[in-house]
Design a protein around this nucleic acid. Structure first.
Lengths: 224, 224
DNA sequence: CCCGTTTTGTTCTCCCGTTCACAAACTCCT
DNA sequence: AGGAGTTTGTGAACGGGAGAACAAAACGGG
């Protein structure tokens, strides 16, 4: 025994961390179907990955399976949720209530996965009348007080690109340490602040690249 | 010379392909600022990557820079756009006009990056009255005729998870070969069809994981 | 015309992630 | 109780990407 208690399992590879939520989702699906036990093969199929990779990923968390049997769905579900940190709710602030911010505020996947939107902020006063997803759209000036009041550590930026850096700076100053950025701009943040970027058009461009390759391959090229 | 013409530069690594749109965006930004020439160092800073990585990425496309000088912004911009395939417009169909579909339909980043939304489809007849982003929301039944008429090869799924697989099957049958999936489900598609998945809640969960780690590290753990 | 300076393109090395393959361990059946 | 059959957990090989470092090439000045 290398004396690795589950809690001190220090370094989980980034690639594995990125897949844990996928496994979690798959387990929830299995639980809803009434499955109580599953093998790595079944779970891997549900999650869309290789079973060896799944087992290796889970081994970073600890030994939660039973050889010859498989994994207890509920138990594993809880363990992964605990590891990710979604056993309790995370308060989240969304800044920029345009089309995308609107959609994010209403996105049910957030609440059901342990995230609670505590405030919607927008710099444009004309939007402050609106009520979106049961929340008033409030002034961006209230950021600091909201972050302090609800102990918010995660912020979502859904503003236009030009405003993103300023919003990020303000978020960091207010004490937010994790940012999910939907604006198409590169954010500069201090050490210790995590930023993840989601760019919808980049995904489409990657598809377009492969799509173009396909048509070239099938002999449809016309450009000299 | 290994006789590698720019057009036949076969195998561009996936990691590089995923960054090309980022470089493209950075170049557009530089061009808007009036910059006509830039070094790999400058461009890398704009794109938020290492300059060595940038140069290596660009070298897969060909030699479009000038040693001692740098890159011509407009020229490189065109070359990357051509490589990705966004020099011409790609027709796109969006299925599922809920909150997210709404936002996607209005997302200006699509049109400005070479994607043209040609139709919005939804299975719910009560939505067929709506006009979103200047387009009628039409019946899902019209998928095949629209795909044929506009020669659509890229489809976007923004439906609930339960409907996603059925929509994907129908898209594939209609001739779509690239799918951008926003529904939180694993899609099974035949060989030759590309699927990219964007899951908003997964990104937040990854942030939550690191966030939890931070608080543990700073000595705030209270769980035995 | 030649040399120093700048910046690209590329080679080399290291590290992370993926996959294979197998031993350990558990269940079930006889 | 013992053995056959499963399935997990992990050691080891393998492949690809990241970063450092350097050689090749272009420009500018004297």
């Amino acid at each position: 025994m290398t004396a690795r208690t589950p809690d001190s399992a220090r370094d989980i590879p980034e690639a594995t961390v990125a897949r844990l939520p996928v496994y979690l989702r798959a387990l929830i699906g299995l639980a809803e179907d009434g499955t109580t036990t599953c093998s790595s093969e079944e779970l891997a199929a549900s999650a869309g990955v290789n079973s060896a990779k799944l087992r290796k990923d889970l081994s970073y968390l600890g030994s939660y399976g039973t050889r010859g049997v498989g994994y207890d769905v509920e138990y594993l579900r809880y363990q992964i949720a605990r590891e990710i940190g979604v056993t309790h709710d995370w308060p989240v602030v969304i800044v920029g209530i345009g089309n995308l911010g609107h959609a994010l505020a209403n996105y049910s996947g957030f609440r059901s996965r342990g995230f609670r939107v505590v405030a919607l902020l927008d710099a444009d006063p004309s939007r402050h009348d609106e009520v979106v997803a049961g929340l008033d759209v409030r002034s961006f000036e209230e950021l600091e007080s909201i972050v302090t009041e609800h102990d918010v550590s995660i912020g979502v930026i859904a503003t236009p690109a030009v405003a993103a850096q300023a919003v990020a700076d303000r978020m960091v100053a207010a004490g937010i340490t994790s940012i999910l950025n939907f604006a198409p701009s590169v954010l500069a943040v201090p050490e210790g602040v995590d930023v993840r970027k989601v760019d919808l058009s980049i995904e489409l461009q990657i598809l377009a690249y492969h799509e173009q390759r396909k048509s070239v391959g099938t002999g449809a090229e016309g450009v000299s």
